[in-house]
Design a binder for these strands. Structure first.
Length: 272
DNA sequence: AAAGCACCCTGTACGC
DNA sequence: TGCGTACAGGGTGCTT
């Protein structure tokens, strides 16, 4: 599943192929992929536009055009790649952007939950997102302030994009393990030391996952913009490892459901 | 503020 | 072998 590190890797991979290219036309095979606009409005707004920049905000890929922005949310199974136009497509490719160099930017999404928005300003979509956990100016004091008054459990809070932007199920579980904090802990019960541990764990896990070019699980869901798998799955400590031995203490990893989502943790290393 | 739920969608894993 | 069904996943919107 694309989370912050995967989206960051995709964005970096798209930069060289896309910046400076002009989108000459668009084909949409699944209209619901296009957020807010009709397919006609979307196609008209995108055609003829040159790509100015590629960025990321939370789990959104941001494609800056000279007039407006494309924001792409990959959800669980969305993929973006740039390929020669004559390369065969398949039934899961829902949007094709023709480029002026004989290639196409393609959006492929088996689950069809991904969305592509065309907006005048990214804030139309990203205004409600919490801070970027890897931003230089995001400090442990900022993180402490965010936690204050939050009476919910840690795990659902870390998944809440309005709290912090970019964590998903994998990296939330990994960060909690690295911080040795139980996913059911009440967020406002953390000591200063525990807050600092969680802050560092989130940043370290995300940085290392970016360095590994993301996580590609056995289901093969995620690949980067050139179709390559990531490498962080080899460093996963708890996610998807229910029943398997903890890498730290060898006791079995537990899998529970919190807020309707699976949570994986070590009941020995992550004490409530 | 927080928790629970249905919804969106389809591949996979299961039971019979 | 082939069918039906449950489930996973992130985000949104609704209700409690």
């Amino acid at each position: 599943m694309p989370e912050l590190p995967e989206v960051e890797t995709v964005a970096r991979g798209l930069r060289d192929s896309l910046v400076g290219r002009t989108i000459t036309g668009v084909t949409v095979g699944w209209p619901r992929t296009i957020g807010r606009l009709t397919v006609a409005e979307f196609a008209e707004g995108v055609a003829g536009q040159r790509v100015a920049l590629i960025g990321r905000r939370g789990k959104y890929v941001v494609i800056g055009l000279y007039r407006g922005y494309l924001l792409v949310h990959l959800m669980m199974s969305g993929r973006l790649c740039v390929v020669p136009t004559d390369e065969p497509s398949d039934q899961h490719v829902h949007v094709l952007f023709d480029l002026d160099d004989g290639r196409q930017l393609r959006f492929r999404d088996v689950r069809k939950f991904g969305r592509i928005y065309l907006v005048a300003d990214p804030s139309e979509i990203t205004a409600g997102l919490g801070p970027e956990p890897l931003a230089d100016d995001f400090t442990v004091e900022d993180f402490s302030r965010l936690l204050a008054g939050r009476r919910g459990r840690l795990k659902p809070l870390l998944l809440n994009q309005r709290f912090l932007a970019g964590l998903g199920n994998i990296y939330a579980d990994e960060a909690l393990f690295a911080a040795r904090l139980h996913p059911m802990r009440k967020a406002d019960s953390l000591t200063v030391d525990e807050q600092a541990r969680l802050y560092e764990a989130i940043r370290t896990v995300l940085r290392q996952a970016i360095a590994s070019r993301g996580t590609t699980l056995d289901d093969g869901g995620y690949t980067d913009a050139s179709g390559q798998a990531g490498g962080y799955q080899d460093r996963i400590a708890v996610y998807g490892r229910g029943g398997k031995p903890c890498l730290r203490c060898k006791l079995p990893i537990e899998r529970i459901v919190i807020g309707g989502r699976s949570a994986h943790f070590c009941p020995h290393c992550q004490v409530e």
